[in-house]
């Protein structure tokens, strides 16, 4: 079910790619398998199918954002991809190295920040690696802190660091910024973009926020009735402006698909 990925020299690679924030700069494309979902169905006892013969392919390295109304099955899809929920019907192919970030940071409160990041990592270099990833998310000054002393945004950045330190080929984020204030959310969006460029991982992010989707995604999906209702490429270069007419157009289209009608 899971395709393996050769991952040689991950440590060296991580340290030597320096993002300069320019669009299209991708020096090393990882030879990762695509994410491929075929006819995936999921039903909870008695209810209607949450996922209904859903098929989806995400090419390696792509940033996909998944939208959908509450209860449309976004988390179910993500959890299935993460291996937390079983594949009952259908087929799921994905790289072996995956990481998940949830809405709540889910840090272990009894482990210091850096210890949370190295959790499950082996070897003497683990701490060094954790420190460098924590520096990437801008938390080098909090590495020894206890998680309960972190702000919501900081905790979420630690969760990001914990996901990235294992150098995933496929990163999944389930409403990672939903609990943050608007300003912090904008900063986090920029951070995720930077990290995505640098780490080159296929990314699937779930959100309720149409603007967030359009700021981040190569491609926006809308989930409805257990299927992909809309699969919308975003042909804009980054950084993106809300004022851009193309942005506006996509925004209207997505809102319409989500059942929200602009009343002007």
């Amino acid at each position: 079910m899971v395709a393996g990925v050769a991952k040689a020299g991950r440590y060296a690679r991580m340290n030597h790619i320096i993002s300069n924030g320019e669009e299209g700069l991708r020096p090393l494309v990882r030879e990762a398998a695509d994410v491929r979902i075929t006819n995936l169905s999921r039903q909870f006892s008695g209810g209607p199918p949450v996922l209904d013969h859903l098929s989806l392919t995400i090419p390696a390295g792509e940033f996909v954002v998944l939208l959908g109304r509450s209860g449309s099955g976004k988390s179910t899809l993500l959890r299935t991809l993460a291996g937390l929920d079983p594949v009952e019907c259908g087929e799921v192919l994905r790289p072996a190295a995956v990481s998940v970030v949830f809405q709540e940071s889910r840090l272990l409160p009894w482990r210091r920040v850096w210890q949370n990041v190295v959790l499950g990592q082996k070897g003497p270099a683990a701490k060094q690696r954790a420190l460098s990833v924590l520096a990437e998310v801008g938390l080098e000054h909090r590495v020894e802190a206890w998680p309960l002393t972190l702000s919501g945004g900081e905790a979420q950045r630690v969760a990001l660091a914990r996901a990235l330190v294992r150098d995933p080929s496929f990163l999944m984020l389930d409403e990672p910024f939903a609990a943050l204030d608007a300003l912090t959310r904008i900063q986090m969006q920029a951070l995720v973009l930077t990290l995505w460029r640098k780490h080159q991982c296929t990314t699937l992010l779930v959100t309720h926020d149409v603007d967030e989707a359009l700021i981040l995604a190569d491609r926006v999906l809308v989930l409805e009735n257990g299927r992909i209702k809309i699969d919308l490429p975003v042909p804009l270069s980054r950084p993106r402006r809300h004022a851009d007419p193309v942005f506006e157009g996509l925004r209207c289209e997505l809102l319409h698909a989500l059942g929200v009608h602009d009343s002007e």
């Binding site: 993460a82 291996g83 937390l84 995956v98 990481s99 998940v100 949830f102 709540e104 889910r106 272990l108 959790l119 499950g120 914990r162 294992r166």
Partner: peptide
């Protein structure tokens, strides 16, 4: 939720 994290981290 923490037990789930342990699973996703491969502990």
């Amino acid at each position: 939720k923490l037990l789930e994290v342990a699973r996703t981290l491969g502990l």
